[in-house]
Design a protein around this nucleic acid. Sequence first.
DNA 1: CGAGTGATGGCACGGTGTGCCATTGCGATG
DNA 2: CATCGCAATGGCACACCGTGCCATCACTCG
Lengths: 186, 186
Amino acid sequence: MARWEPRAAERLQKAALELYLERGFEAVTASEIAARAGLARRTFFRYFADKREVLFAGSGQLAEALSDAVASADPALSPLNACLAAGESVGARLAEWSADAARRRQVIEASPELQERERSKMAQLTTAAVEGLARRGVDAERAQLVAEIAILIFHTAFARWIDGAGKVAFEDCYREATVELRAAVA
Amino acid sequence: MARWEPRAAERLQKAALELYLERGFEAVTASEIAARAGLARRTFFRYFADKREVLFAGSGQLAEALSDAVASADPALSPLNACLAAGESVGARLAEWSADAARRRQVIEASPELQERERSKMAQLTTAAVEGLARRGVDAERAQLVAEIAILIFHTAFARWIDGAGKVAFEDCYREATVELRAAVA
DNA sequence: CGAGTGATGGCACGGTGTGCCATTGCGATG
DNA sequence: CATCGCAATGGCACACCGTGCCATCACTCG
């Protein structure tokens, strides 16, 4: 099966996360990441469009999952509640999988450039939610607003869950954030 | 008063906006912007940290104004309402001033990189609102959530106002977005 | 007139991201 | 087995970015 050492992309991600942790994002070179992964600089840019993307692999699949979850949520739910339900289930799955979440977050928090990219990924999730809402027949303007609110909750909950260092369940963070939203708006 | 041609930064902004409109952000070089402004490339990077920043000058002052407006809003208002009131007044002042808003928005919408930067500027506004809320004694976690909601409204209203092409008042867009928020959450 | 000062220009450097082509290793086909 | 095809990889060159450093310019002040 494997012609060369397998899982090149995975190795690059691992190497990048390590180096970013050791020296900070800006002080790390694409060549260095590639070298640690046993690959050439040119190969790095085949797998990832730039130095930031290497930390956000798989976010496209997350967006797709969210879109589907929104579209297929209980038809009786309001647009916002459909998004919130979808966000909770998708986020819960994500929370199981990622043991690197805290280290990733640590790296991102130390770099404005990476924060910028993370916001783009959140925007991508918003777009996915909008798309899911469209499949429910929600009109575009309203969908945009609703999706933004839902992703705000999602992001808030995720951040708090990571800060909780495994002592709190993601779903609890999520519901707490939802309650706070409703209280703040009321 | 003026040693060289005055208002170098202003000239650079004008040249950049023109070129970005003509050829798109990515196809324009810092050297070209500087040349059109009658300056050297090196000078461009003295005024603006990178090619994106040239479109976002003055956003720092906006953030400061917002922070102050939040802090000095009617003490009887809830945190969210204080932010919303502050956002409306600051946004209204901004709406008067900027005739380039539509062209700027057109350029930004055509470039993912610029959208990324715009999100950073919105985040900066959020931080400013959080700071204003802190001066009101709102605790940090709640302030973050409330500020994000307020900036979401602000951004939505601004986008719709620009799309309205001068036919609608900013305040109307703002209030409409606020009503939709409350309806969506309820 | 000369010293001081702040804006500007020029230069060089390391890094980024990309197009292009050569090389490598493996499976499939005869 | 020979050889073709193919996809991953590597190497090279290039334009551009952003920055440190220093020289130059134009104006002010003593």
